[in-house]
Design a protein around this nucleic acid. Structure first.
Length: 427
DNA sequence: TCTGGGGTCCTAGGACCC
DNA sequence: TCTGGGGTCCTAGGACCC
């Protein structure tokens, strides 16, 4: 029995989330910006048609936004996260084997279907739209990589009605020929330049290369991509969510920051968030890294960046300890006289909190128990009443420092905040 | 004035050990 | 002048992804 993979991808996901609650946005150009309203990270088809590039800095487009009546939104991650969960849950009701791959993508297995995979996929996409208001495209192939390729065509060409099945497709070679080398999943900018320099321009060219040659140029990961394009699965469906091996929390600042005190405050906030994620996956960590850097785009200002990692005396998920260590590192890498634009922390050396390797320095069982209880209580309160309901004073009492984010065009939290739930007036 | 955030995997090279 | 051969572990950096 042959495995059939499908990739479900939400169309222009963040834009579609905004549209789901504001139909006035349909058929006009819409973009969503990154944190601090910095870059453009999602575009409606109308915005794409205006030539607005993914990742372009928003400030360079202000004029054209105005000229073309582009609707601009700050990113609203509570809304997108919740809408994503709705889509994934809906998929789970329709198909037994679902792998949530990213906030807007899921892989499915479509083996042993009673009907034709394409018909089945069309039905999925219709139901998802009906239940959540989010339009999706579905690509079907013998491997994940081929399903990805199919998905691009399903999305780009309306004649497919949002679904393309590449299995036993008579035009298979044509689709591969029309797939640029850099559009293959796993082949990025660097490798596509290299491959093109050898005349390998599209997925069909790539498919015809020898395993040995591809491995010698692109290591085993490239070889896996080759086999996948040739129809041999190297990547399976991963149903169980993986625990992260590293957790990063970092932000660019709303305005640049000079003082050690403000950096400490921002870092304490990032550490709190990272530690929350760490505990949520039932982990503890033994390595803590801190980094800071100035604004690399300001060529007129002196530049500085640095990072340092420390191994803690014993693995922990206890926020106050992590804040303390982060502050120690910061003091070592902080230099007076620079305008800092970004800082962050990374937790690594992650292991399960259930199998704690005790060391000579570990606190006694009584204290560990107490720390665990405090964290559990804090996480529970913040989970119930909203994040940051209680937090450490080190993270700043007034969230008004110049480091806090700018989000001047934020839509309401339609689905995750009672005060902002949309109201329908009947009369 | 204004340029995101968060991950994974692989490899090479150094430190260290016997 | 000549200076072993393996093995492991760790880290930094590069490539990729969304």
């Amino acid at each position: 029995m042959r495995t059939i993979f499908a990739l479900v991808d939400c169309n222009n996901f963040y834009v579609s989330c905004e549209r789901a609650f504001d139909p006035g946005l349909n058929s006009i150009p819409v973009v969503v910006l990154s944190n601090n309203d910095g870059c453009i990270i999602a575009r409606s088809n109308e915005a794409k048609a205006l030539g607005i590039a993914m990742g372009a800095p928003a400030f360079k487009h202000k004029e054209m936004f105005k000229r073309h009546g582009v609707q601009v939104f700050s990113s609203n991650y509570s809304l997108y996260g919740d809408m994503s969960a709705r889509v994934m849950n809906a998929l789970g009701r329709l198909v037994p084997d679902v792998e949530v791959y990213s906030i807007d993508e899921a892989f499915l297995l479509l083996n042993n279907l009673p009907e034709n995979p394409r018909e089945f996929a069309l039905n999925i996409s219709e139901k998802i739209f009906k239940w959540t208001g989010i339009p999706v495209s579905i690509g079907i192939g013998a491997t994940k990589t081929l399903a990805k390729i199919a998905n691009r065509f399903a999305k780009k060409h309306p004649e497919h009605s949002g679904v393309l099945d590449l299995i036993n497709n008579p035009d298979f070679e044509m689709y591969l020929r029309q797939t640029d080398i850099e559009d293959i999943w796993g082949i990025g900018r660097k490798y596509s330049l290299l491959l093109k320099s050898y005349g390998v321009r599209n997925a069909l060219d790539f498919m015809e290369q020898s395993r040995h040659w591809v491995e010698s140029k692109m290591t085993v990961t490239g070889l896996q991509t080759l086999l996948e394009v040739q129809g041999m699965p190297c990547f399976n469906l991963e149903k169980t969510p993986v625990t992260n091996k590293s957790i990063i929390s970092s932000r660019s600042f709303g305005k640049s920051v000079e003082s050690l005190e403000e950096l400490e405050e921002a870092l304490a906030c990032y550490v709190s968030r990272a530690a929350e994620k760490l505990r949520a996956q039932g982990s503890i960590c033994s390595l803590l890294s801190v980094f800071v850097h100035t604004n690399r785009f300001r060529k007129d200002l002196p530049q500085y960046k640095n990072h340092q990692t420390m191994r803690m005396p014993y693995p922990t998920a206890y926020t106050p300890d992590l804040i303390r260590y982060a502050r120690d590192i910061l003091k070592k890498i902080y230099k007076f006289g620079y305008s800092y634009k970004k800082a962050g922390v990374m937790l690594s050396g992650i292991e399960s909190s259930k199998r704690v390797q005790l060391t000579f320095f570990s606190p006694g069982p009584e204290r560990r128990k107490k720390e665990k209880k405090i964290m559990k209580t804090m996480d529970m309160i913040n989970g119930k009443w909203g994040s940051n309901t209680i937090h450490y004073a080190a993270a700043g009492l007034e969230k008004s420092g110049s480091w806090t984010m700018q989000r001047s065009m934020l839509s309401p939290r339609y689905t995750t905040c009672w005060k902002q739930v949309p109201v329908v007036l009947a009369n």
